[in-house]
Amino acid sequence: MADITRASSLTRRAGRPRTGSEGLPAAGKQPDLIAHVELLFFAYRDFTSGPDAALAQYGFGRAHHRVLHFVHRNPGLRVANLLEILKITKQSLARVLKQLIGEGFITQKAGAQDRRERLLYVTPKGARLSDRMTALQVGRIEAALEAAGPEAEATIKRFLCAMISEEDRAQVERLVRTPRESEKLSEENGS
């Protein structure tokens, strides 16, 4: 593997740090933050490696994984809501959905009130693939949390939420609930 941490890769020929406008920290910013960026790259690489291998068996990619995941976690999800969650174009989603529906991983039903509305559900085959990929990633997160120590979980959750753009944070926090949080919400709503 190439040495990607060489000081020369972070400086100009004159030896001065690059400016923020060139994509690297401006003078006065902590150079250690670059290491955090790189750690995120490597963590994401390894976090997605297991599911990538599973998806490759079907000729699928990460977009297929995201669609399967959110449809599986939110049965009856409207296509419009999925577009909002994934922040992708209709054309991109249409291509991925066509494959997933065509190969029997997702079904699409018309809405009860509005027949034009398309509601998405995973099939048993889609649920198995989604569960398989989720198990790979949950195992990696579980091991990482154990290695990070007992206080890490809450800190990591706060950090990851803070990484999400402020305008999307509330929506993401509503979408991403643990079973405990869902149970508490149901109790508060009298369900």
Results as ranks from 00 to 15, higher is better:
Ala127Gly: 05
Lys184Gly: 00
Leu160Val: 14
Arg66Glu: 13
Gln57Ser: 09
Pro179Tyr: 08
His65Asp: 06
Lys98Tyr: 06
Leu77Lys: 00
Leu120Ser: 01
Leu160Pro: 00
Lys109Trp: 00
Arg116Glu: 09
Ala94Val: 04
Phe47Ile: 11
Val67Arg: 06
Gly126Ser: 12
Asp32Phe: 02
Asp52Glu: 14
Gly126Tyr: 08
Val122Asn: 02
Ala143Asn: 10
Gly102Asn: 07
Arg158Gln: 15
Ala26Tyr: 05
Glu117Asp: 15
Gly50Trp: 09
Ile101Phe: 04
Phe42Ser: 02
Thr134Arg: 10
Glu142Cys: 02
Ala53Arg: 15
Leu82His: 00
Val172Ile: 14
Ile85Asp: 01
Asn74Leu: 10
Ser130Tyr: 06
Ala127Phe: 00
Ala162Thr: 11
Lys125Ile: 06
Lys98Met: 10
Arg78Ser: 07
Leu119His: 11
Arg13Asn: 01
Ala35Lys: 08
Phe70Glu: 12
Phe41Trp: 10
Asp114Leu: 04
Glu151Val: 07
Gln108Val: 12
Gly139Asn: 14
Leu24Cys: 00
Ala170His: 07
Tyr58Asn: 02
Asn74Pro: 00
Gly59Leu: 09
Ala94Ile: 01
Leu83Phe: 05
Ile4Arg: 14
Thr134Cys: 05
Ser49Leu: 12
Cys161Ser: 12
Thr178Val: 11
Gln108Thr: 11
Gly126Trp: 06
Gly61Pro: 01
Gly76Tyr: 10
Gly50Lys: 15
Ala63Gly: 10
Asn81Ser: 09
Glu153Arg: 15
Tyr121Pro: 00
Thr178His: 09
Pro51Phe: 03
Ala2Tyr: 11
Pro75Val: 09
Phe60Pro: 03
Ser165Gly: 10
Asp114Met: 02
Leu39Thr: 09
Leu55Asp: 04
Ala63Pro: 01
Ala94Phe: 03
Ala14Asn: 13
Thr48Asp: 14
Ala143Phe: 02
Glu84Asn: 07
Val79Met: 13
Ser186His: 04
Arg6Lys: 15
Glu181Ile: 00
Ala2Asp: 12
Gly149Val: 10
Ala152Thr: 11
Ser165Pro: 07
Arg132Ala: 12
Gln171Ser: 08
Thr155Gly: 08
Pro124Asp: 13
Ile156Gly: 03
Ala27Trp: 02
Ile34Ser: 10
Leu40Gly: 08
Tyr44Ser: 13
Arg177Tyr: 03
Pro51His: 06
Thr11Ser: 07
Leu10Pro: 00
Asp114Trp: 02
Arg140Leu: 15
Ile101Ala: 08
Leu40Ser: 13
Lys90Phe: 06
Ile85Pro: 00
Ala154Asn: 05
Pro51Tyr: 03
Glu22Val: 09
Ala143Ser: 13
Ala147Arg: 15
